[in-house]
């Protein structure tokens, strides 16, 4: 057994090292960074991105991409809020169907899953590149959100629903619990199930996977459905946190989630990556966002910095691949 070169050993932990350096620098530059309230604040903020990014990781592992997560998030959040607030009226039969919190949440999650499933169906059935198929869904879902909300926020969703976004459970914000449960489940799926193995296999070599008997279309359909489902979970988290569903919610979230996946070491060409890496990527993005705000950096520069970090992550990833 040959010893691993030191460069590869370091490369394995590059995201963790980057996060450590970032935290160290920010703790010197801002006295507010390393406070308990700021830490909880960062964790709450990144919880949504973690959920979306986990779904995105599965998609990217199959060598795909999902640009629609931000819009799916908005639509699912709006459906949840709308049903919770107003239910469904059936004037023809003089019936009103009201939704409990769990019912509305379930409806939002089903919406997200169906939209994701539709993405998967378009990609597998018509062989449309994921980039194009999900770009279409990005616009469709945003349009549907505008139609559902009539362009206005749906607010006043009640204290019980708002508890999800602002409440604490056993000393930890509920949002963080949701993110943790999502991550643990995703890690289990990716590492301990046959389905998880199939995802890696398809991303590594789709033709070989097909020849070895894996039902590629079914796996992809499920992967995009999961991405949609987790975007919906993110939408419910956002709606609950703001106590309102905004028609323009989730704009740009797809980029943040792709950034988290890439920074976390998942290869955009598929087959290589991990959920913990993505979580680390989301934490880096979150800490970076928080740090730039604390340092009073202009929002315009913040975007530039974020873009540069993503580019750097991809370049480093490419360099690592070559060395390996």
């Amino acid at each position: 057994m040959s010893a691993q070169p030191i460069y590869l050993k370091v490369a394995k932990y590059q995201s963790l090292i980057a996060l450590f350096i970032l935290c160290l620098a920010l703790s010197f530059l801002s006295d507010k960074f390393l406070t308990a309230s700021n830490t909880w604040n960062v964790l709450r903020q990144i919880s949504v991105n973690i959920c979306i990014s986990v779904g995105m990781t599965f998609v990217v592992l199959t060598a795909g991409i999902d640009l629609s997560v931000g819009s799916v998030l908005a639509l699912s959040g709006a459906i949840t809020a709308g049903l919770l607030k107003s239910g469904i009226e059936l004037p023809g039969s003089n019936l009103f169907i009201g939704f409990t919190i769990s019912g509305a949440i379930l409806a939002g999650m089903v919406t997200g899953s169906l939209l994701g499933c539709f993405n998967g169906w378009i990609i597998t059935k018509f062989k449309v590149p994921p980039f194009v198929a999900t770009l279409g869904m990005l616009t469709i879902a945003r349009g549907l959100t505008m139609l559902w909300t009539k362009g206005y926020p749906i607010s006043g969703l009640g204290n019980h629903f708002a508890y999800i976004g602002s409440g604490w459970l056993l000393g930890i914000p509920v949002l963080v619990w949701i993110a943790c449960i999502t991550v643990v489940t995703a890690v289990f799926i990716s590492n301990k199930t046959i389905f998880g193995r199939y995802i890696f296999a398809i991303g590594g070599n789709e033709n070989a996977s097909r020849l070895s008997g894996i039902n590629i279309n079914k796996v992809k359909l499920m992967v995009y459905s999961i991405a949609g489902l987790l975007a919906a979970v993110g939408g419910i988290m956002v709606a609950s946190r703001l106590d309102s569903a905004q028609p323009n919610a989730g704009m740009g979230y797809e980029l943040d989630s792709i950034a988290a996946v890439v920074i976390g070491g998942t290869s955009l060409s598929g087959g290589r990556g991990s959920i913990p890496g993505t979580v680390l990527g989301a934490v880096i993005i979150g800490v970076l966002n928080n740090g730039l705000v604390l340092l009073d950096v202009s929002p315009f520069w913040q975007q530039v910095v974020k873009g540069l970090v993503i580019l750097l992550a991809v370049i480093v990833d490419k360099a690592n691949s070559k060395v390996e």
Partner: peptide, 15 residues
């Protein structure tokens, strides 16, 4: 069970 706990139905005019 989930559906029973998810929705409730009322007469529209009462609502």
């Amino acid at each position: 069970f989930v559906a029973y706990n998810a929705v409730y139905i009322k007469k529209l005019n009462e609502v």
